[in-house]
Design a protein around this nucleic acid. Structure first.
Lengths: 361, 361
DNA sequence: TTGAAAGCGCTAACAG
DNA sequence: CTGTTAGCGCTTTCAA
């Protein structure tokens, strides 16, 4: 019997299985085997052992006993003691946008092999919500933070800066990132898309997106459109802003209607996202307007819909999952560096994208 | 100076602001103000106070000091001490399926007002992954668990049963739920959809879904189709199973092609989801087959796409967010009951759904 | 209303 | 390789 367990006042345990998670502690396992808590702790933490049949046998007995007694390690206690939460906090604008959820997916894949768990939150495209989320998440002491974009409230920015852990801002290419940055220039991408449409012969083009203030990334894309059109010496007045982010398919349809009422001779519409583009396409179909015969339509993001609809929609393909994966890898390196006391300079990783010209243009 | 802080060996703090989160503890706040940790703790936990200008003034000073010193409460320590993690664990099949992410959204909304945070995980439609996730999440000692559906590995089921906290299984209506159940009969829903199509005059109908083994919900829907067709005395042989869940739009298109090659005179196709239905619709458009003229198409889930495309797709509208919201409310009641030592019987909440007949049929 | 003592379950650090 | 001691930062409990 181990003395360390003598002070325990919990009710007697079922020798075979615990009634519920959290009833059995390491001390119980240790007591049962007549060893110390530390031995149990070590057996549970060192996944691979060097040679030693004796200790390997003990290790197995410990594992079996944990199994038998229904022991589930208390990560809270572990975190509290070791100062390592095993959490990576991530904040995305919305769960139901597969661009962002793919990024979260990529992040999860990248960090789970290191035993890290992703603590996910979403802002609904609201900076105040983001600030609140950051505050809440910091209370869980994440070992790294991944946020979407570079637009934050001043307080949120301050929190991130003083978080004491590596921060990655994703999706946008930033002039003054807080820490690391994994993304691309949304403006450049749309600019290239417009140039590609120009080469195809389109001249009278419009941009269909949301209210710029509500979505920094959308505003960047709009800016890229305006830049390209100016460079080409084309008319930049044909733009419509339909409500706050996220702009829906429905809004895309309505926006197209507005746009074509105002500028009936438009040849092509560049949309802030594939969702909006699809809404516009559907509206054309309702009107029996041939696409691209009467009007060409382009989107952004390479969502499943733009590949699956007919005609397929021209878009900018982004490696959403790759952004998350790279962010995760960067974070892991930064965390390991910090553990060994090394410094790790903030890095900016430029992610590739590709203009996908398809049937809609 | 407070004696409680005397043992602290941390380096001297910047009196204005901490260099990083976690550097400042409650004891520092207390020492700064010459009060005890407990007073700080109470000020931070009791959001509203009863009358007492004096204590209210102190409370404000405490809050200001926390602000000034950049104090961020350590939720890990709080959890460890109070045995309340503030976590609700939830597991969904996939992040990028808006039905499930809407459920997660509804759950989050329902529990955040109670100060609970949602710890989210996704299985990619794999039961082994689910088991692993449950195991990992239980180490964080969630106060409640929400899982999707009733199909779990035996070990996962055992873990949930012995978790010691309320469990809600969602989306499906179960014969033997582990704890609470919030959902509806997917089979019944599809059955009603088929009956509605029958009333519209359709007779030769097929079902397009994934491999039943890979998706319990999809299998239920398939079963509902078969049941309805049998009841109506119609041919039940026209079914196609396209790959594992989640079945993509692309697979929907391919499945439709297979189906029509085998049974060219089919009048209507019922699909396991709107995504599949949309893929089928797009394939028809590619072939210039009028929908519903040549073939009627129905889906499931009332995703944005089915409302926005042309023609709009007939579907089963499910209150996805409502499922999450009700699950969250149920969980909160159960948690509160448990805290006051009351028993709280497992409940089954039947959620409504609606057959949405649209242009595609 | 406030304070002091105790301790949650684990791991770091050191000793054997 | 294993054991012992100490303590993480809070909240619980009890006392004033």
């Amino acid at each position: 019997m181990n003395g360390q367990n003598s002070g325990k006042s919990a009710p007697p345990k079922n020798p075979v299985a615990a009634e519920s998670v959290g009833q059995v502690t390491m001390a119980d396992i240790a007591a049962k085997l007549g060893i110390s808590k530390m031995t149990v702790s070590r057996a549970l933490n060192r996944s691979t052992r060097r040679r030693s049949d004796a200790s390997e046998a003990l290790r197995q007995r410990i594992l079996d006993t944990c199994q038998d007694m229904g022991y589930v390690l208390d990560q809270t206690a572990r975190t509290f003691s070791s100062k390592r939460s095993g959490f990576i906090a991530t904040i995305i604008p919305a769960l139901n946008n597969s661009n962002f959820s793919d990024t979260a997916h990529g992040l999860t894949s990248a960090v789970e092999s290191a035993g890290m768990q992703v603590l996910m939150g979403y802002t609904d495209y609201d900076m105040a919500t983001e600030e609140k989320l950051i505050r809440t998440m910091l209370m869980r002491r994440p070992e790294g933070i991944v946020v979407t974009g570079g637009s934050h409230t001043p307080a949120a920015r301050k929190l991130l800066q003083s978080s004491g852990v590596p921060v990655v801002e994703t999706w946008d290419l930033l002039n003054a990132p807080i820490g690391h940055n994994v993304g691309f220039s949304n403006a450049q991408a749309v600019r290239q898309l417009v140039l590609a449409l120009y080469e195809k012969g389109y001249r009278r083009m419009g941009f269909l997106g949301g209210i710029p203030e509500s979505d920094a990334r959308g505003a960047d894309r709009r800016q890229g459109f305006l830049t390209a059109m100016s460079e080409l010496g084309l008319d930049t007045t044909c733009t419509v802003a339909m409500g706050n982010a996220p702009v829906s398919m429905e809004a895309g349809a309505q926006g197209l209607a507005q746009m074509m009422a105002k500028w009936p001779d438009l040849e092509a519409v560049v949309c802030v996202s594939d969702h909006v583009a699809f809404g516009a396409l559907a509206e054309c179909q309702r009107r029996a307007w041939p696409v691209p015969g009467k009007l060409a339509i382009a989107g952004f993001g390479d969502f499943e819909i733009s590949r699956s609809c007919h005609p397929q929609i021209t878009t900018v393909a982004v490696d959403s999952a790759g952004i998350g994966k790279v962010a995760g890898q960067l974070l892991l390196r930064a965390i390991l560096a910090a553990r060994s006391g090394e410094s790790f300079k903030p890095e900016t990783m430029l992610m590739p994208y590709k203009i996908e010209l398809r049937g809609s243009t």
